[in-house]
Design a binder for these strands. Structure first.
Lengths: 138, 138
DNA sequence: CCGTATCCCGAGCGATACTG
DNA sequence: CAGTATCGCTCGGGATACGG
């Protein structure tokens, strides 16, 4: 059985104007609005292996700025995807841990990685063909 | 068995600097960069039910502008997710159809919708708690 | 009917410097 | 160590008007 249209009912949490029949699209957007940021997934992956400290993330993510690391961590924490534990020591120590629902999300993302791995060459080919047919570099 | 770190090998198609151990993050980003746009999913959903015409999409998506509809259609076509068929009639008629790999992607997205449906209340609660604890509206 | 062309704005992100 | 503050830019996206 393919995807059943209408199996997803409502779209109440969003402020986006999705008409009926587009409930699924809306639901997906919900997720994308939360982990669609440039660094969210990377942080989630790192934190899914166990508690991670701020500076460790800064090293592991490579390319991220202090600012974006902080911002993304805050957003993930706000959405209940990360738990932030502060040790009142000196120097300070903060650990970030993926919450259970983040781990579930992580699992769900596997479907996407699988798709990407199966078709990324096809996508690349399609791009090449398209750019060939139209104006590649003019 | 939970997600096995390292089961996804390389990240060759991207131009983003993902260090080793972040291959999964990179792969997911690949997908997000393609369907992460504001309207991509909606169009994909509509086109997955069968061929759709331009104006029909314009009505079904509700809120989308002509410009963004065209742009998003072009991107999806370029990535091989949509097939564009032009009937040389007058007035012109154009049909967009989801390709097989788009349908597979659509299936993969079900995992995300499932996650969203299971936890969107938890996320909302987390947000509320966070905003409560910090400065909601001050 | 199916687009393109232009203008404009705000969010997202990067760089840099400062702090408890 | 783990942040905050400020600036500035790029780019996605909205509004509007025009064209084949």
């Amino acid at each position: 059985m393919p995807v059943t249209p209408g199996s997803l009912t409502r779209c109440e949490a969003g402020d986006q104007p999705f008409p009926p029949g587009q409930a699924k699209a809306c639901t997906v957007r919900e997720v994308l609005d939360r982990v669609g940021g440039k660094w969210s997934i990377g942080i989630l992956v790192a934190a899914s292996q166990g508690p991670v400290r701020f500076t460790e993330l800064e090293r592991r993510i490579e390319g991220i700025s202090r600012r974006m690391l902080t911002l993304t961590l805050r957003n993930l924490e706000r959405d209940g995807l990360l738990h932030r534990r502060v040790y009142p020591t000196v120097p300070p120590k903060v650990e970030y841990t993926a919450t259970p629902i983040a781990l579930e999300l992580y699992e769900s993302l596997v479907a996407l990685t699988s798709w990407a791995e199966r078709h990324h060459t096809a996508v690349a080919d399609a791009r090449g063909a398209y750019d060939q047919a139209h104006g590649t570099a003019d």
